[in-house]
């Protein structure tokens, strides 16, 4: 019945009009990053340069709140509205239900961030020429961005997608216990900000909690590549989703 539940959740998801709304919000935010980019003095403006600058400025601010909005209320609302009891009455187990939620919400985050970034990139094409990313190109990550701008932009997109899924897992895990929708929605953001603050106390570890490409690009002492960061967030995503599934499956009460 897991496959049927995943189909059910995907159908529900596609009916959500808020997806389009948040997509537009994210695009507008990314274009404000472009305005900031245009105000900077760069040797030569290119589409990859604009894309990497704008996404690195905007996405870290929005990924966690977006995950909170999308997933925070998922379990709480179903439980509070009584829809959960209808779903369980169809013979669906708690494990099947929460697994379908985890799978569909993670997929929706991936698709939402991925599609929005692609749309953003395509929207930049008429305004900027193709070409390298103009950084100092002295260190490995900078040289990589300079020499392989397509791969670099793909990697940072992958990084944002993975981080979004990790934040999704945090929202899902929180919603297993916390019944206040607003708290659940805010949880990924609060947790992220808290961790950033804690890690910032130790300068050598800041880079380990901050996944974003911009840092990797400018700080030569960071001992991880962008791909490392992708893996790092993927592990967080996996752990939080598995924990959420286990915690919900073994819960005593769902109402």
């Amino acid at each position: 019945m897991l496959a049927e539940m995943i189909k059910f959740e995907i159908s529900r998801l596609l009916k959500r009009r808020t997806l389009l709304f948040w997509g537009i919000v994210l695009l507008i935010a990314l274009f404000t990053g472009i305005i900031e980019y245009l105000g900077m003095g760069t040797p030569k403006r290119t589409v990859f340069d604009a894309f990497s600058f704008s996404t690195s400025s905007i996405m870290p601010l929005l990924l966690a709140p977006m995950a909170g909005f999308f997933t925070g209320g998922a379990l709480v609302e179903d439980s509070r509205s009584g829809l959960l009891s209808l779903i369980f009455s169809k013979g669906v187990s708690a494990f099947e239900y929460v697994t379908s939620k985890a799978v569909t919400s993670a997929l929706s985050q991936m698709c939402f961030i991925g599609i929005t970034l692609v749309v953003f990139f395509v929207a930049l094409l008429p305004f900027f020429p193709m070409g390298s990313i103009y950084i100092g190109a002295q260190h490995y990550s900078e040289a990589f961005a300079y020499n392989e701008p397509v791969a670099y932009c793909f990697l940072i997109a992958l990084l944002f997608i993975t981080a979004a899924v990790a934040f999704n897992g945090i929202a899902l895990l929180t919603s297993v216990w916390v019944k206040n929708t607003f708290v659940v929605m805010a949880a990924p953001t609060l947790l992220y900000m808290g961790l950033i603050y804690v890690m910032s106390m130790d300068a050598t570890k800041v880079s380990l909690i901050d996944p974003y490409a911009n840092l990797a690009l400018i700080d030569v002492y960071i001992p991880v590549s962008i791909l490392h960061m992708v893996c790092y967030w993927a592990v967080i995503a996996l752990i939080t989703h598995v924990l959420a599934i286990a915690a919900f499956s073994f819960k005593k009460d769902y109402m």
């Binding site: 009916k15 009009r17 009584g82 829809l83 009891s85 779903i87 009455s89 169809k90």
Partner: peptide, 27 residues
């Protein structure tokens, strides 16, 4: 089993037929 909870649990954006189609798709 069929359940009528104390509080109506429905997908508010959809019409009646869509609601029931969605729920029946599970089984």
């Amino acid at each position: 089993i069929g359940i009528v909870p104390e509080q109506a649990a429905l997908l508010g954006d959809m019409d009646a037929l869509q609601n029931l189609r969605m729920l029946s798709s599970i089984r």
